[in-house]
């Protein structure tokens, strides 16, 4: 992927500030007050620069998918700001958002479910054109064929149905559908986690090629650390709805500062069996607290080996500690894990 690391003088294409997404669990009785609130995302901030890949990692339920969905207003932000090319997205009407969607697309996790089984592949790929009124009978088929070639599919399969394709091929179809409008930003919601490992590499390399060719910025949501490491320029780590650490890939993997990142990295297996045997694993105690009732202060404090009184009382800010390495911890300390 793009090799140059983030340059702060560039303006971000996607800028998220203090994003909060709460889900209200509705009571089954009408007119009753909502019984509980799920704090899915709680004050996340990050920037995505043109042409780069920002990896967003974290365990299931930490809010990374919700963050991605909020970008496209598939999940409604409770508060905060999402700016695309300087334009505020939160509170936009459906119509106004439609214009933005042409530049902001998403590839979904499930390649089997994200294609309409009753539509041919060509129809699915052409749908964005039709929705945005850009389909013409003269140019449309050519654009579809071009998009299919870009993702390594033979255009003659345009008239087939999704059930005739493998998972990897379907994910390519999903990517073609997202690409056909030439978006500036692509949100990749675990694009390879549903695929076989052998197929993953193909799709990831395809994404890298496409980025190089079209200069698209990726927000790559994933839980597989090795995939994220391979793909990303920068990596953000999420825990229970908050970003705890965000840094250039090399920095983050070589010198993680947040205790959660350190624990996460220490859990990723190493290819070298000798190194794997020698290294120290950080075992976290307990489970992730429920997002309906998150801990006060630092959300990680209930499981953090360094937790002090201050952690329960004060929410640690995400502070840049040099070289664009921001950490949200009262006691940050670089530690070599891998």
């Amino acid at each position: 992927m793009a090799t140059d690391s983030t340059d702060t003088t560039r303006s971000p294409v996607l800028s998220v500030r203090d994003l909060v997404v709460h889900f209200q669990k509705k009571s089954s009785l009408p007119f009753a007050k909502p019984t509980s609130v799920v704090h899915a995302v709680c004050g996340s901030s990050f920037d995505l620069f043109p042409g780069e890949t920002l990896g967003l990692v974290g365990e299931s339920g930490c809010g990374k998918t919700t963050t991605g969905r909020a970008m496209l207003q598939l999940a409604e932000p409770t508060s905060g700001s999402i700016k695309f090319d300087g334009q505020e997205l939160v509170g936009l009407s459906r119509k106004e958002m439609g214009e933005i969607r042409q530049n902001l697309q998403i590839v979904f996790q499930d390649p089997f479910g994200s294609l309409d089984p009753k539509m041919t592949v060509g129809q699915s790929i052409a749908e964005p054109l039709a929705i945005h009124g850009r389909w013409t009978d003269e140019e449309g088929p050519g654009l579809v064929a071009e998009a299919m070639r870009h993702v390594g599919l033979d255009p003659k399969f345009a008239s087939r149905f999704p059930n005739e394709f493998s998972g990897g091929q379907r994910q390519r179809i999903g990517i073609a559908r997202a690409l056909i409008l030439n978006p500036k930003v692509l949100i990749l919601d675990e694009p390879v986690s549903a695929l076989d490992v052998s197929v993953q590499a193909g799709v990831i390399n395809l994404l890298a090629d496409l980025q190089e060719k079209f200069g698209i910025a990726y927000l790559m949501i994933a839980h597989d650390l090795s995939v994220v490491r391979h793909v990303s320029d920068r990596v953000a780590v999420m825990y229970l709805g908050r970003i705890v650490e965000i840094a250039d890939k090399v920095d983050l993997y070589s010198a993680p500062q947040h205790p959660y990142t350190q624990a996460l990295l220490s859990a990723a297996p190493l290819a070298d069996p000798k190194a794997e045997r020698q290294r120290k694993r950080i075992i976290l105690e307990g489970d992730v607290p429920s997002p309906t009732n998150p801990p006060s202060g630092c959300r990680f404090r209930t499981r953090c080996p360094k937790a002090q009184d201050i952690c329960a009382n004060e929410i640690p800010d995400l502070i840049d500690r040099g070289q664009n390495h921001a950490v949200a911890c009262h006691f940050p300390e670089a530690m070599k894990i891998i």
Binding site: F108, D110, I131
Partner: peptide, 11 residues
């Protein structure tokens, strides 16, 4: 998911 995909496209 394909319904959500369509909504995400702006349908």
């Amino acid at each position: 998911p394909f319904v959500e995909a369509s909504i995400a496209l702006g349908a």
